[in-house]
Amino acid sequence: MIKVKINGQEQVWDGDPNLSLLWFLRDEAGLTGTKFGCGEALCGACTVIVDKQAVRSCVTAISDVAGREVTTIEGLHPTGDHPVQKAWRQVNVPQCGYCQAGQIMQAVALLTENPKPTHDQIREAMAGNICRCGCYQRIENAVHLASTGV
């Protein structure tokens, strides 16, 4: 029996301990905000935050997060008004929007670690997150906006 705290709520799992956190979140816990894009830690669509760090949930076994705090896009802010989410809307970042939960979670982790990243640091830190629609310029600007307010 594995216990894990997701968005402040304790969840219990007694199935395969090697099940990835991604499919646990989506299919077992019903938290579908976290997306699947590659399953191999190559695209970042499944990014969640585990104890302040960005983690690719597709390659993280549920047993690896036992007893830890997982935050998904749904738990980032009660009304969706985290500064990063607000910046995303101000810059009109998304096209299809599918990658954006992962992008936002990655950006939140980046700004936790480095509250004032340079443009180069943003480009490097966000390079693990693919956006096939090509919203990179706006993602970069939104991260910058969230960090500086301008």
Binding site: T32, K35, T72, E74, L76, G80, Q85, G97, I104
Partner: peptide, 16 residues
């Protein structure tokens, strides 16, 4: 876009 808020909060509904 009408889905902007939902997209940024993980509520937007895709096929998956």
């Amino acid at each position: 876009i009408v889905d902007l808020h939902d997209i940024t909060t993980g509520k937007a509904h895709y096929g998956i």
